[in-house]
């Protein structure tokens, strides 16, 4: 069975239902709108370029076992292994990857979100707060007093 998805800029994609269902959001929509399949499912936050990439990811991972996402209090979850295909997939520019994270978050494609967050962590972990602010165009909104307090407070994490 096929489903059609429509990106925010109006491009329509036709994919297998099981591929689309890697997105929790689409899966839920399909349950609700079982009968009404004439119209494409609109994805208002996802552009065509990103949607194509998300679909590429989902096509490749269509047969993966689903991740049990229960928030178990014992949080020693096994990290998902990245295979070669995933590594290849993440060789894109930063902007594209952050757009993909956004898309994966809004569509709730959990494994892709996981992959993207790992990528983002690899970027920010090597940066100072100032460099992070520059990259993401964030304003430093701490007062000098707050900054001092934070510095003092995080001393213990440095060891």
């Amino acid at each position: 069975m096929k489903v059609t998805l429509e990106s925010s800029d109006g491009q329509v994609f036709t994919v297998d239902k099981e591929v689309a269902e890697l997105s929790v959001i689409i899966k839920e929509m399909l349950v609700i709108e079982q009968a009404n399949q004439d119209h494409p499912i609109p994805l208002l936050n996802v552009g065509a370029v990103e949607l194509a990439k998300v679909i590429e990811y989902c096509e490749h991972h269509r047969n993966d076992p689903t991740i049990d996402d229960d928030e178990d209090y014992d949080s020693r979850k096994k990290p998902i292994e990245m295979d070669d295909w995933d590594k290849q997939f993440t060789i894109v520019n930063k902007e594209m990857m952050f757009e993909l994270i956004l898309a994966a978050n809004s569509m709730q494609v959990k494994p892709l979100l996981h992959l993207g967050c790992r990528y983002a962590a690899d970027i920010v972990k090597r940066m100072s707060p100032t460099e992070i602010r520059d990259l993401f165009q964030i304003d430093d909104d701490f007062t000098p007093e707050e900054q001092d307090k934070i510095e003092w407070e995080k001393q213990w994490t440095k060891l």
Partner: peptide, 21 residues
Amino acid sequence: VLMAVAQFLRRGELAQCLCVC
């Protein structure tokens, strides 16, 4: 999303990120 990123950061790295904004 930021919290999901945090799971891949170690404590010192997290502390750096706490200082961003």
